[in-house]
Simulated assay, not measured.
Amino acid sequence: MCLHVFPLPMNVMEETESEIASKWRDNGIKRGVGVSRARQLIKAATDTIGITVGLQMARQELQILLGQYDLLHAQLEQSVAGIEQLAGQVPGAEQMMSVPGIGLVTAAGFIAEVGDISSYQHPRQIQKLAGLNLKENSSGSHKGKTQISKRGRPQLRALLFRCVIPLIAKNAEFQGLHQYLRTP
């Protein structure tokens, strides 16, 4: 919002602290937009070396970049709305999102990678699809390390890893399971 209203440091220095704070509030920013924050912005604008030549083109380039950002942000919101609508039609998506720590993007990504969950008879099938099944690296009398096979979908494996991190942080059942599996 500051880049839209005050694209250059010289535009910040033209305003007073109270004018900056009131413009923040007028543009819908409610938290952390007091006079002290405006004072910090003015101090940073006065201390910056900034550009002094080509200000017209710098302002135009900022407007172009901000326009692209606004367009991408609107497209992202539109995509998320479409995903929400489609996720409501998929059986099992609402139950997945009811688990604390699982959001819309995680549930949609899982369904996109796995498909219909009812077509699997056992959870180990999904585990194998992701390449998370265990294999032992041994030959003859040599007994090697046991590790995951990684013979599966790498995107699904990465999605499951990224979804487990917040699950461990937010879900007590998963915290207990994680603690149990990590203790020797």
Rank of each mutant, 00 (worst) to 15 (best):
K128A: 15
A93E: 02
M57T: 09
M57H: 12
A87D: 08
L76A: 06
P100C: 05
G109M: 05
Y69D: 03
K135I: 13
L72M: 14
K150F: 11
L66W: 14
P123V: 01
A108H: 08
A130H: 09
M96Y: 04
T52L: 11
A81I: 00
P123Y: 10
L62V: 07
G88F: 01
R124K: 15
T52D: 12
Y69K: 10
G92E: 07
G140Y: 04
G54K: 04
G82P: 01
D70L: 08
Q125I: 02
S36Y: 07
I64H: 14
S139T: 14
K135E: 09
G50E: 14
Q95F: 01
G54D: 00
Q56G: 07
V90N: 01
L66C: 12
G115A: 00
R59W: 05
A38C: 03
S139A: 15
L41H: 07
Q78K: 15
I126R: 06
A44M: 12
L66F: 12
D116G: 01
I117V: 15
A93R: 06
M57Q: 07
A58T: 09
L55W: 00
I83M: 14
S141V: 05
S119Y: 02
E136L: 01
Q95H: 06
V80Q: 14
L86V: 09
R59Y: 08
L134K: 05
K150N: 12
M96K: 04
S79M: 14
S139P: 02
V53E: 15
L66Q: 14
L55V: 03
V90C: 03
I102H: 06
L71I: 03
L86R: 12
G131C: 09
D47A: 13
K128I: 00
M57R: 06
H122N: 13
T48S: 15
I117Y: 13
Q63W: 05
V35M: 08
G92Y: 03
V99K: 02
Q40M: 08
A112T: 03
A108R: 04
I42F: 03
R39Y: 06
E61N: 07
E113F: 09
T106P: 03
A112L: 01
H73R: 15
G50K: 11
G140T: 04
I126G: 05
L134F: 06
M97D: 01
L132I: 07
T106C: 07
V53H: 14
Q127K: 14
Q85H: 11
I126Y: 04
G109Q: 12
S149D: 08
G115H: 00
I126P: 05
S139K: 11
T106H: 06
Y69W: 13
S79C: 10
M96Q: 10
F110I: 15
E136S: 13
G103S: 09
V99W: 04
E84H: 13
Y120N: 00
S149W: 03
